[in-house]
Amino acid sequence: MPLEEKVKNLQDMLMKRPLINLNVDKWKNYVKSAPRNYSMIVMFTALSVGVNCPICKPAYDEFYILANSYRYAHMNTKAVYFAIVDYEEAPQVFQQMNLNTAPVIYHFPAKGSRKKHDQMDFQRMGIDADAMAKFVADRTEVHIRVLRPPNYAAPVVVSLLVMLVLGLLYMRRNNLEFLYNRTFWGIICLCIVFAFMSGQMWNHIRGPPFVMTNPQTRETSFIHGSTQFQLVAETYIVLVLYATVTLGVILLNESVEGKGDSGKRRVLVYVGLGLVVVFFSLLLSVFRSKYQGYPYHFLFN
């Protein structure tokens, strides 16, 4: 296929959709064969539910945002095109590239052969659209400003919450002593801290599954084995572990500052120390399961 026809076809496909779906024929014509005066940024992924790739969908969503941002600002540049190869549609391409994992992003340069740095390192850079834009800029010198679609869910939820709080204050306008209660504000602050430390915001942005089931063994996992992903159940587990360790520290503090009898204070010391030791060990075990090779543990492996 002549170069002019290639570019014209790619521009037509870009007009319809930011990402070009590559089958075997398109892969040969637009990526592997010469002549070519444009770069191709290709994501190899597996979006089928049967493949059970939990990180593929969020990575694809970020890649789509990047491609759409490029189309918005660089429509007529004709320098870079974004494409995807799905395993279910073109397994032969995965075999040609010797790929047994997904997702993977490769840069296919306009001239010369592909080099080691033409593969994006997700472990080091992350899977968000801004990291992908930096990778594209490093390989092609095309700088893309990431434009995310507006999300109105958060302002609506915040507005409803504010209205609910104001309504409660109005209903209890004659009895507002609880606003001066230090314990009340301390519990609210702890809930906010636990929510952010456990990864609730990450869940809100990425939308991960609650648990993950291995299709071969049918085993259900509540803790994801990768440092780049987490499950909703894992978030709740980590939140409970942090909260229990905090409760243990509070009991230890109360045993020192309390004015009760020595027997009660001794019980608080033992209970608080037991909570801290046991649940901090469990928290360290969760950390070790995600960061393979971490050498330290306490009570549990």
Rank of each mutant, 00 (worst) to 15 (best):
M1Q: 12
M1A: 14
K6W: 11
M13A: 12
K16V: 10
I20Y: 09
N21H: 14
V24S: 13
V24K: 14
K26C: 00
W27H: 12
K28F: 02
K28R: 13
K32T: 08
S33G: 04
S33C: 04
P35K: 06
P35F: 10
V42L: 07
L47E: 09
S48E: 13
V49N: 11
C56V: 06
P58L: 08
P58H: 09
D61H: 06
F63S: 04
L66M: 08
Y81I: 08
A83R: 07
Y87F: 15
E88F: 02
E88M: 10
Q95T: 13
A102I: 05
I105N: 04
P109V: 03
K111W: 04
G112L: 01
K115N: 10
D121R: 09
Q123I: 13
D130H: 14
D130R: 14
A133Y: 10
K134H: 13
F135C: 06
T140R: 07
V142Q: 13
H143G: 03
H143D: 14
P150W: 08
P155D: 11
P155C: 10
V158A: 15
V165I: 15
L168P: 04
N174Q: 14
L179A: 09
L179E: 01
N181I: 01
R182M: 10
I188A: 10
L190F: 07
F194K: 00
S198G: 03
S198P: 01
Q200W: 13
H204P: 00
I205R: 08
I205A: 04
F210S: 04
V211P: 00
M212I: 07
I223P: 08
I223T: 06
G225R: 14
F229R: 08
L231M: 03
L231A: 06
E234N: 05
E234I: 02
Y242P: 02
A243R: 05
V245A: 11
T246R: 01
I250T: 07
L252S: 06
S255W: 10
V256T: 12
V256F: 14
K259Q: 13
D261T: 04
G263F: 13
K264Q: 09
R265W: 07
L268I: 02
G272R: 01
L273T: 11
L273Y: 03
L275N: 02
V276K: 06
S281I: 01
S281G: 01
S285N: 02
S285W: 00
V286G: 00
K290Q: 09
G293T: 02
Y294P: 01
L299K: 00
